[in-house]
């Protein structure tokens, strides 16, 4: 049985209540972890569970927006099921084999919870590719195919195509792109393009890589993964072919994010280094 909460633990309870209802900033999280280490009376989940039970109560209110009577859209469910397949053949299979997965890289975005902080790494290339492949197959299942992937064009010829657009990079909020210059060149008819960069800060590829995302006005879910790349630390420049994992219908924004090595399937977009927006 869990010990009763004593109101003398005011600061700890304040932090637990804040976390359960609107989250904590990193300093508050560190303070909470320190306070929890000093007491055995709390697991730390107590008020989260209370809030969860109340959330279930409210969601059951008749006619409430978001009540369970509103089913998850079919497209979202299909993407989840594709994700589940990847899980079963990747991390889930590792669990079944008894392998602990704390260091097993998988897709997704980072978590503050060290128990669920697995990320993509060099050793997980196959798992990541499987994830991307499954997701791609699932997405293509319900999104109309826009174009068949054409043969790879030499980069120099892409810019000469009649529908090719050239868009200059602008710095994103992340400091790595503060001095970025260059452009993205994209042809929708060829479904091909490339990017040039100067001033984009080189990263340690063992820690992070840049990843391109193509926001597509014809899609409702995630932006299209355009591939990962590095900046040559000797020259500070790069020319990179765009490796769109899905057909792009109506590009509305090209964005460069900083991600773990190998990239992610779904970016949390917390580190956006550069953007290029067709006007």
């Amino acid at each position: 049985m869990t010990a009763p909460m004593h109101h003398s633990d005011d600061r700890l309870l304040e932090l637990l209540a804040d976390r359960a209802t609107e989250g904590l900033d990193p300093a508050q999280t560190a303070e909470l972890e320190r306070l929890l280490r000093q007491t055995a009376a709390y697991s730390g989940d107590e008020l989260d569970r209370a809030a969860a039970a109340l959330a279930s109560v409210y969601c059951s209110a008749p006619g409430a927006p978001g009540a369970p009577s509103e089913s998850m859209p079919d497209g979202v469910r299909a993407a989840l099921e594709a994700q589940a397949k990847t899980w079963r053949t990747g991390e889930g299979a590792a669990r079944a084999a008894g392998a602990r997965t704390a260091a097993t890289p998988v897709f997704g975005e980072p978590s503050r919870d060290p128990n669920v902080a697995g990320r993509i790494g060099a050793g997980a290339g196959l798992a990541w590719m499987a994830a991307a492949a499954c997701l791609m197959l699932a997405l293509l299942g319900w999104w109309p195919r826009i174009a068949t992937t054409p043969p790879e064009l030499p980069l120099d010829r892409i810019a000469a195509l009649p529908d090719a657009v050239r868009i200059a990079w602008a710095p994103g909020p992340d400091e790595t792109g503060a001095e970025v210059e260059g452009e993205v060149v994209w042809s929708n008819s060829a479904q091909s393009g490339y990017m040039t960069f100067r001033g984009l800060r080189p990263l340690d590829p063992s820690q992070n890589q840049y990843q391109l995302w193509i926001f597509d006005g014809s899609r409702e879910l995630h932006p299209v993964d355009g591939g990962v790349f590095d900046i040559d630390p000797r020259t500070g420049e790069a020319r990179v072919r765009i490796d769109a994992k899905l057909p792009v219908g109506q590009p509305t924004l090209f964005a460069i994010t900083v991600e773990p090595p190998g990239g992610v399937v779904v970016s949390d977009q917390t580190r956006i280094a550069a953007v290029a927006s067709p006007s």
Partner: peptide, 9 residues
């Protein structure tokens, strides 16, 4: 799925 969807909304 439906429960999580309702919470997400």
């Amino acid at each position: 799925a439906d429960l999580v969807w309702s919470i997400a909304l």
